[in-house]
Design a protein around this nucleic acid. Structure first.
Lengths: 225, 225
DNA sequence: ATTCTACCTTACAGAACTGTAAGGTTAAAC
DNA sequence: GTTTAACCTTACAGTTCTGTAAGGTAGAAT
């Protein structure tokens, strides 16, 4: 994963760099607020742009302040997780940072192992952000397609949305009416259509996934046995 | 949003309940580990199941321990964010909790405003989890469809995946070859196909979204002006 | 056991999508 | 200004998807 580290304390930066590299990430280190601004929120889109999966951001920076960088980043990118890392320990600072769009806030001094764990937590969620996984089934948010046991599972639009709906509530039944509304867009679709698409989806779903019917209610995505 | 609160300290639970309700959430409160287990990780799928957007979990519980509940939940649900809330303040405890799949960890005693902020941060991310938003464009992960200015934007499969790909790297150019691979699944697709689908997508993309071409490279999703 | 209802399965026609080919247009290089 | 390569646009045929209708099957209730 790509991590952008924005930290002006050279000593700490070096430590974090080594630490995170040791976990297999590639680190881009910046020590100046203005440069961070340029990288994370380029004035003209298309100029360069970042490729970060996570931003670790110190608030005390030369040049543009850390909170300004965060705000600028969040103007167009609500996606990349941001972990704030700072010496300011007041509760109000934390609240402000979090409400500006940060995902976590760690006050110095902190244990390195805790930073590692929080980074793992953020990257973990990023890795399978989106509609999630259920058993061997996963949804790849980049290609908007499903995979089962790692094998791509190509599905036509309707079936894909149907499966997404069931996956979203995986393990518990979803009413037929709800499926019509969420997967079919509440068009003038007959009630039978759901049955037909469930049938089609069943033929394509690989083991051990099954679609159990809950009579009178709807369907559940589940695993066999 | 639906929040499941698992906390056996009646005093604290009451406070949190009021606090979170005041922010407009509906709270389901449990004070026993076994019941939490039943709700969050039902032994048989389809029994009942939770409908939570966030779980706030105390570790010290009568009955099943909080970490057991977390582990059981994560066996099938990697999706719902979990905020751990506990008196155990050791760094090792935090690391263990986070590595078991928690998304955040707050040690007692804590400021209520910080809890609120962290809850907001988790729900915010959950609200638009997945492939993100860019300007007025957003992706609804439940229905696997795009919206622009809130209006649904129906797209055929190929165009949808193409847009997802561009959105995923929004603001910076994506190479044509990459689009072929990620959106078209590396089939035996001619190079011209991308141009055709870009063209089709352009006709459907509402203002102010544009697809700029970067000659010799690929395309960028951007906003007009 | 019978009846009823909910669900399954199949088939089909209309519609929409997909990818290629062919020619037009624009931008960069010389 | 000419040339060249990259990109745009249109058209088209093959394929796939969509939703409905019609009949079959299975579960529940009496």
């Amino acid at each position: 994963m790509n991590i952008v580290l924005i930290e002006d304390d050279a000593m700490l930066a070096r430590t974090l760099d080594e630490l995170l590299r040791a976990e297999g990430h590639s680190i881009e280190h910046l020590d100046h607020g203005d440069r961070a601004m340029t990288l994370l929120a380029p004035p003209r889109a298309g100029d360069a742009g970042h490729d970060a999966d996570l931003v670790v951001l110190d608030l005390n920076l030369p040049g543009a302040g850390g909170l300004d960088v965060l705000a600028a980043l969040r103007r167009h990118d609500t996606h990349t997780p941001v972990l704030i890392l700072t010496a300011r320990d007041g509760v109000e600072d934390r609240v402000r940072g979090l409400d500006l769009g940060a995902d976590d806030y760690l006050a110095k001094p902190f244990a390195l192992s805790e930073l590692e764990a929080r980074v793992r937590a953020l990257l973990r969620r990023r890795g399978r952000s989106g509609p999630v996984t259920f058993g061997p089934l996963e949804f790849d948010s980049t290609t908007l397609s499903f995979r089962c046991h790692g094998e791509p599972l190509a599905l036509p639009g309707r079936e894909q949305r149907l499966l997404a709906c069931l996956l979203h509530h995986a393990g518990r039944p979803v009413a037929k009416a709800r499926l019509v509304q969420e997967a079919f867009g509440a068009d003038n679709v007959g009630d039978n259509a759901v049955e037909v698409y469930i049938h089609r989806l069943r033929k394509r779903l690989p083991e051990p996934l099954v679609l159990r019917t809950v009579r009178g209610l709807g369907y559940v995505l589940d695993t066999r046995s």
